[in-house]
């Protein structure tokens, strides 16, 4: 039989009459594509309806005209101008940034050693889990109680002042402990610390103990190993933790309201009060600025470490 006949016969034999003329590989690809759309669609639908559209709407409303009790869809930059020229609001923006940076630093300072202990020194997985759960125990109480519980702790007649006075360290109660920026920082550090501890612990516990032993064997002391091996390998955890803390602190208003005696105003507090007095356009401006700020912060943090390598 000649080759040409063979060649012409082959496609005819492959043809499946019913299922169309696609190969099984193409069918498999098509099925996989259909599956991924099926998996994605609820999330995409949800995010479009309740995240993307509202965000666009907020941006749109920020250009509406605000009268005393109503907003009209007449485009103006009045609200933007007012925000960007008012010292009160710029001050709130600065307060937000300052508190964010301070809380980020304090959660890192408090959280990293804890993570180091749980992730590196405790090598028993069960004990690690138990310790992490212990870190989360404060979350078994409601947010409001967790925040308000600081008042009897930090107040002029609170626990800390009483103990310090009993010990004779101070003669007058410290006023700065409560209803100050310090109390806001203390409260936020306590609430958000665990979000720093978790990701760092995870990264640290993934470090092969042999790698640290290898560094020791090559002659490096503890601090050298920490600086050259442990810290770089835990950076993805630090970045993820920082993103968690940043997103939550930047949008905060409740802790500031409850523990500062309304003296500390963050962008979140501005939004709450503006919405309360029906100043929708102005609240939208603050919202857009807050969102932009978060976007910049997250983009900056993601620049620090290539998270793609860790997935």
């Amino acid at each position: 039989m000649s080759r040409t006949i063979e060649a012409s016969e082959e496609p005819a034999m492959r043809q499946v009459p019913e299922a169309g003329s696609i190969s099984s590989a193409a069918a498999q690809r098509r099925k996989a594509r259909r599956m991924s759309w099926l998996l994605l669609s609820p999330g995409v639908l949800w995010m479009t309806l309740f995240l993307v559209l509202p965000m666009l709407m907020v941006l749109y409303v920020s250009f509406w005209t605000q009268t005393t009790f109503t907003v009209e869809p007449k485009l103006t930059t009045a609200s933007w101008v007012r925000f960007l020229t008012s010292p009160t609001y710029l001050d709130a923006l600065w307060t937000t940034v300052r508190i964010w940076l301070l809380v980020l630093a304090s959660t890192l300072v408090v959280g990293y050693p804890v993570a180091l202990f749980i992730g590196l020194l405790v090598r028993n997985k069960t004990l690690q889990t138990v310790l992490l759960v212990l870190c989360v125990i404060p979350f078994w109480t409601s947010f409001l109680i967790r925040v308000l519980a600081w008042r009897p702790m930090l107040g002029t007649q609170g626990a800390i002042n009483m103990i310090l006075m009993k010990l004779g360290i101070i003669s007058h109660p410290l006023e700065m402990l409560l209803f100050s920026e310090l109390s806001v920082l203390i409260g936020m550090t306590q609430i958000y610390c665990v979000f720093m501890v978790g990701p760092i612990t995870f990264m640290l516990s993934r470090i092969d103990p042999n790698v640290i032993e290898a560094a020791r064997d090559l002659g490096a002391g503890f601090w050298r190993i920490f600086r050259t091996i442990i810290l770089p390998l835990s950076m993805p955890g630090v970045v993820v933790g920082a993103i968690f803390v940043s997103v939550m602190v930047l949008g905060e208003f409740a802790t500031a309201a409850a523990l500062s005696g309304r003296k500390t105003n963050m962008l979140g507090n501005i939004i709450v009060s503006q919405v309360g007095s029906l100043k929708w356009a102005f609240a939208a401006v603050a919202g857009v600025i807050l969102t932009l700020l978060m976007g910049v912060v997250i983009a900056g943090l993601l620049k620090v470490v290539n998270l793609r390598k860790e997935l």
Binding site: A215, L218, G219, R224, T228, L233
Partner: peptide, 30 residues
């Protein structure tokens, strides 16, 4: 001052080949 070669190699995952090899010389205390 005794060398150890691990079964799983235990290379420093964040360093390149030269960085791994130079580690001991650069970071040893002695």
């Amino acid at each position: 001052g005794i060398g150890f070669v691990f079964q799983n190699f235990a290379l420093f995952p964040h360093l390149d080949v030269a960085g791994n090899i130079a580690f001991g010389l650069v970071n040893r205390r002695r």
